[in-house]
Amino acid sequence: MSGITAADRFEIHELLARYWKTVDEGDLKGFADTFTEDGSLTNYTGTTTGREALAQWLDDYGPSRAGNRHMSTNTTVTEVDADTATVWSYMVVIAAFEPRTQTPHVAAYGRFNDTVVRVDGGWLFRERLMDDLALNAIDYPG
């Protein structure tokens, strides 16, 4: 297969970075726009489908993300065809709920298996699937 170029891979990595930036900043529209119109997110809260519902999901998630900084790591991109790829990555959440007074630490980690598609020359999530999650009890008691 040779449809996905190095530039495509870079853009897919940028998609993951943009996704987490919108989460950390509470950018509801920007978050929803990282997905296709009928894109879905499946995680510990269930499955959320469609941009409007995804924006609402992020809005509802707001209190849980205050002070968190999310990132993707160990990302791999596997071509399915010229316009589709699967993406595997870890998510690491660094917490500093009281900036400048609290030591940053790992609050959570998870694993994602995603399907991304080329739409109008760019890459978007069609499906994000969190298939593993561990939470630090200090940050997420109970």
Rank of each mutant, 00 (worst) to 15 (best):
M130S: 11
L124M: 11
R118V: 03
V93A: 13
R111S: 10
T76R: 01
N136R: 10
Y19R: 07
V93S: 08
V106G: 07
F31A: 04
T47N: 04
V119I: 13
S40L: 11
P99L: 14
T36R: 09
W20I: 01
T84K: 15
R69G: 00
E14I: 02
A107F: 01
T73E: 04
G3S: 12
L58F: 05
W57P: 04
V87I: 00
G26V: 03
T42D: 06
D24A: 11
I12Y: 09
E79F: 06
M130G: 05
V119K: 15
F35Y: 15
T76L: 01
H105K: 12
G62W: 04
Y109A: 06
A108K: 08
A85G: 07
R111G: 08
A85L: 01
Y44H: 14
D81H: 10
S2A: 12
T73D: 05
P141Q: 08
V119G: 03
I4T: 11
T84V: 12
V106Y: 03
T5W: 08
V117M: 13
L129N: 10
V119N: 06
W57H: 12
V116C: 05
T36I: 05
T22W: 08
T22V: 09
G110H: 02
T78P: 00
W123T: 00
A137Y: 00
T78D: 15
L133P: 02
P104E: 11
V93Q: 11
W123R: 00
A6G: 10
K21I: 12
E37S: 15
T103L: 11
H13S: 02
P104V: 08
A7H: 12
D24W: 11
Y109E: 01
G26I: 04
V92W: 02
E11G: 02
T5P: 05
A7Y: 07
D132F: 14
A108H: 13
E79I: 05
D81F: 09
T36Q: 08
M71D: 00
F31Q: 06
Y90C: 08
W20T: 09
L54D: 09
T36G: 07
M91C: 03
A6Q: 14
A53T: 09
D139M: 09
R128V: 03
K29V: 14
L133Q: 15
T36D: 06
K21T: 15
